[in-house]
Nucleic acid binder design. Structure first.
Lengths: 165, 165
DNA sequence: AATAATACGTCAACAATGTTGACATTGTTT
DNA sequence: AAACAATGTCAACATTGTTGACGTATTATT
């Protein structure tokens, strides 16, 4: 397996991504079933947990689904008190999304499942090798989206520093 | 971004995988629409292309869906002459799956789209870095499945050597 | 002040893809 | 002959995606 237009290698890469994604999402999916939720709910919980105060429009841009599709799961999460909204201070049309204690608890549990999976899988990797994997995944993302993704990473790290210290 | 139970880094890893998978599947999805097919059809075309003579039971194990769900798309692909079946020589209950010329053409076109995406994204990576990415993806796959995946990789490489020389 | 644009919510219909359960067919094994 | 295995099929239903149309605040523009 080396990179150089080797057709076999490229096909293998495609399959690795498919199987990795398949097995990676399997764990949380099980846990979610107990709540009557699915993968779509997980995505909302994840991104609201990581970006507290996220607006609906931003979430739509992240998930790339129609607002009707998002609204179906978001409505459930709000009705069942996993998520709540706050009207924007400046612009009162905006709804900022946050997790309730219950929502945060579930998001954290799902995160913990994936943490174990990742650290179990990658514990043998050097920091350098791990960096290569992250860089590789990042460059698979469409050029226009990479900036947005990295921007949100930065904000999350700033928030985390702000609350830790 | 370094590997060591850094919560931020692990969350970032999760998101990278999500966005990479999202953007990686977007290309073929568009092409498939023109044929009235979806991602489920793509998976069948891909794995039959890579493993000619694959049995239905093996495909079910790869995709991890119910036979009824598979049958729906497989039936379409057979009726529209992208895939054909051959009765097993030894065990005549078995149906071995193959692509027709038309099916192979479509599978190749979809492969080409993803090839361009991958090589465009990873062209700056050293062979070593590329190897790290592949190893990382592989280890994200459930332990029991890694052997199967690697086994099929080997078979595909053997087949490819057999027909190339 | 009237009008347009924005952010969001909602109703309805429909499509793709997943599920389970039940049953039929054909071929192999015991 | 009876049991098992591999596949196909019918039906019902769940989740998550789509489009189109419309409603309601709120803000921005003219």
């Amino acid at each position: 397996m080396e990179f150089d237009k080797d057709e076999q290698g490229l096909y293998e890469f495609i399959e690795l991504l498919f199987f990795a994604y398949r097995d990676f999402t399997a764990g949380p999916d099980e846990e979610l079933m107990a709540f009557g939720f699915g993968r779509a709910h997980h995505r909302v919980l994840h991104f609201v947990s990581r970006n507290p105060g996220l607006m609906v429009a931003e979430l739509l841009d992240i998930l790339r689904v129609s607002k009707q599709s998002l609204n179906r799961v978001l409505k459930q999460l709000i009705e069942e008190k996993f998520v709540f909204q706050e009207q924007g201070a400046g612009d009162r049309r905006r709804r900022h999304l946050f997790l309730t204690a219950k929502g945060q608890e579930l998001a954290d549990r799902l995160g913990a499942i994936q943490f174990e999976q990742i650290s179990g899988s990658l514990k043998g990797f050097s920091p350098k090798a791990y960096q290569n994997i992250c860089d590789g995944l990042l460059s698979l993302i469409a050029d226009d989206d990479q900036k947005e993704v990295l921007g949100r990473f930065d904000e999350a790290r700033k928030r985390s520093r702000g609350s830790d210290e």
